[in-house]
Design a protein around this nucleic acid. Structure first.
Lengths: 196, 196
DNA sequence: CTGATTTTTAGTACCTAGTCCTAATATCGG
DNA sequence: CCGATATTAGGACTAGGTACTAAAAATCAG
C-alpha cells in the first residue's frame, strides 16, 4: 500500500539528504511510484537534480582545500606600546576566524593575537615563545572586538614573562602567561643560549 | 602559434588538476584547439570526464564528513584519526610561517596545528579550548615538516584532556596539554547529516 | 454516486557533457 | 613529395535530467 504524498515527500527528503548520489530512477523504484512523480516531488521540495547535488558537495570540498590560513605579520592592530613594559592590541573577529558550526572564534586566533603581542612588547625582535599557560575564559563570537593587554611581569637571564589579558568589552575572554626567550640572532636554532 | 601536443597535454593535466570543474568546451577555447582534440588528450592521459571528476571529489568529501569537524577547520593535514582517542596531523613550515629575521616558525602556527588537532579528535558537534599549557621545546625552522600527535588522556562530563606532542623528525618541538570543553549535538545519533 | 479536484502517469522535445566511431584534412619530419 | 602523426568534423548514442502537455487514476465534497 502506497503511503500518502506527504509522507513520501518527507522520506524522499531524508533519503536524498542521506545519499545525495541517488537518481530519480532509483528513488522511483524505492517508493514504488513513477519517475515523473519523483520529479514533481523534487520540484515541490526544491531539491536540485542529481548533478547539481553532486556538484554542490564537490564544491564544498574544493573550498576546504583552498584553505591556507593567511596569518598576517602581526595579528591584530597594536594601538599602544611601551617596550619592555606593556602593549595593547585590537583584533576584530570576522567570519574567517570562527567555526562555521557555531560562530565561535577558534582558539588559535586569540592565542595568535596574544602571542604576537607578547613578541612585540619585547624590546628585541628575536623573541621566541618558550612556554605558555593559557586560559579561554569565555567564548568569543563573530563580530566581537578583542582587546589584548600585555604586561611584562618579570625578566631574568634571557627570559621574560609576559601576561596577556584579552577582553571583549569588559569581559575577560582569554588570559595567557607567556615565557619568552630573547633569542640571539644566530642562524642555529638547535642550541639556544641567552646572550642579551 | 599553437604549442606542441606534449606541452598542451602537460598544461591540460595541470589545469584540470587545479580546477576539476572545467568542461572540454572551455578547455578547447583555452588551448585554442577543437573539443575533439581535448577529448583525445583526456583519453591519452586517462583523465575522466567532468561528471566523473566532480563525482570523485564529492565522494571524497562524503568520506571526510564522518569526522567531527570539516577538514577546513584544521591547520595541517590530518593523516590519521581515531575519534575520541588519537590523531596525527602534518604541517609543513613555509616562508609565511616564520620570522623573516631568523627563519624560525612563529609559535602560534605550532599552537594552531596542535589546537585544531585537539578539536578535531573530539567526537562532538562542538569542542572549545578551555585551558592549555604549552611548551615550545625547540625552534622549528622553515622547510620542516611538523608531525603533531594528539592523544586523549582523560575525559569527564563535558571536559576532555588532550595532549599534543609535535615532532620534527625525532625531535620534540612542542608539547601542549589542552583542556577541551565539549558539547554534544542536540540530536544524538551515529548518522551524520549531509547538508543539501 | 456524481462531479470536481488533486495526484499520478505517460509521452514529447530539448539540454549538457559527454562516449564511440569513422572519415577527412593538416602539419611535420625525412 | 610521401607517409606518419595530429587535428578536426560529423553522426549516432548515452545518462540524467528540464519543461511542457495531456490523459488517466485516485481522492474528496456534497
Amino acid at each position: 500500500m502506497r503511503k500518502s504524498k506527504k509522507e513520501r515527500q518527507e522520506r524522499l527528503q531524508l533519503t536524498i539528504q542521506e545519499n545525495p548520489f541517488v537518481t530519480d530512477e532509483e528513488l522511483a523504484q524505492e517508493f514504488n511510484v513513477s519517475v515523473q512523480t519523483i520529479r514533481l516531488d523534487r520540484m515541490e521540495l526544491s531539491i536540485p537534480e542529481l548533478r547539481e547535488r553532486i556538484k554542490y558537495v564537490a564544491e564544498k570540498n574544493m573550498q576546504d582545500e583552498v584553505r591556507s590560513l593567511p596569518i598576517e605579520e602581526v595579528i591584530g592592530d597594536i594601538i599602544d606600546i611601551e617596550l619592555d613594559s606593556s602593549a595593547i592590541s585590537l583584533f576584530d573577529v570576522k567570519k574567517e576566524h570562527v567555526f562555521t558550526r557555531n560562530g565561535i572564534a577558534r582558539g588559535h586566533h586569540l592565542f595568535a593575537q596574544a602571542n604576537s603581542l607578547a613578541v612585540a612588547v619585547i624590546n628585541d625582535e628575536m623573541a621566541l615563545t618558550g612556554k605558555a599557560e593559557i586560559k579561554f575564559t569565555q567564548p568569543v563570537k563573530e563580530g566581537s572586538r578583542v582587546i589584548a593587554k600585555a604586561k611584562v611581569t618579570g625578566s631574568e637571564k634571557g627570559w621574560t614573562t609576559v601576561v596577556v589579558s584579552s577582553f571583549v568589552g569588559s569581559d575577560l575572554v582569554f588570559r595567557g602567561e607567556f615565557t619568552m626567550f630573547r633569542a640571539p640572532s644566530s642562524e642555529k636554532g638547535e642550541k639556544h643560549e641567552a646572550r642579551n
